[in-house]
Simulated assay, not measured.
Amino acid sequence: MRGTTIAIEDNPDGQGRRAALIVDGQLDDLLIDPPGGEALVPGAIVRAVMNRPMKGQGAATVRLPDGATGWLREAKGIAPGTPLTVQISTHAEPGKAIPVTTRLTFKSRFAIVTPGAPGLNVARAIRDEELRDRLDLLARDGMDGTEGLGLVIRSAAEAASEEEVAADIADMRALAEAILAEDGRSPELLVAGPDAAERAWRDWPAPDTVDDVPGAFDRHGVNDQIDALRAPRERLSSGAWMSVEPTSALTAVDVNTGGDTSPAAGLKATLAAIGALPRALRLRGLGGQIVIDCAPITKKQRIEVEAAARRAFKRDAVDTQFVGWTPLGHIELIRKRERLPLREVLR
Rank of each mutant, 00 (worst) to 15 (best):
L283R: 04
L346S: 05
A308V: 09
A272K: 06
I303A: 12
A308L: 09
H330A: 13
K299C: 00
A317W: 11
E338F: 02
V323I: 15
A231N: 13
R282P: 03
A252C: 08
S237H: 12
A280F: 07
H330N: 11
G329H: 09
K336P: 01
G275H: 14
A276T: 05
D293L: 01
R233F: 03
I331H: 01
G324S: 08
A276Q: 12
P278A: 08
E306G: 05
R235N: 14
K300V: 15
L277E: 05
F313C: 03
S262G: 15
A273Q: 04
E245S: 11
G258I: 08
R235W: 13
A265V: 10
H330Y: 12
R315N: 12
A264W: 02
V244M: 10
A264P: 02
L281D: 01
A272W: 04
A264Y: 06
K268S: 12
I331R: 02
I292G: 00
R315L: 14
A264F: 04
G329K: 08
L250W: 08
R315Q: 14
R302F: 06
E338L: 14
A309D: 01
D260S: 10
I290H: 00
V244S: 05
A280W: 07
A264K: 14
R339H: 12
Q289R: 14
D316S: 10
P263C: 10
A272H: 06
P246Q: 10
T251I: 02
L346F: 06
L271I: 07
R282F: 03
T257Y: 00
K336Q: 11
A240E: 07
I292F: 00
Q321R: 15
A280D: 06
P327E: 10
L333A: 02
P246S: 09
G287C: 07
R235Q: 14
L286V: 05
L342H: 08
R302Y: 07
I274G: 03
P278M: 09
R315K: 15
K336I: 01
D254K: 01
A240R: 04
V255M: 01
G324M: 10
L271P: 03
P327R: 11
V345I: 13
R339D: 07
A269D: 05
Q321V: 15
G287R: 06
D254S: 07
G266L: 04
R315F: 04
I334T: 15
P278D: 06
A308K: 05
A308T: 11
A312I: 07
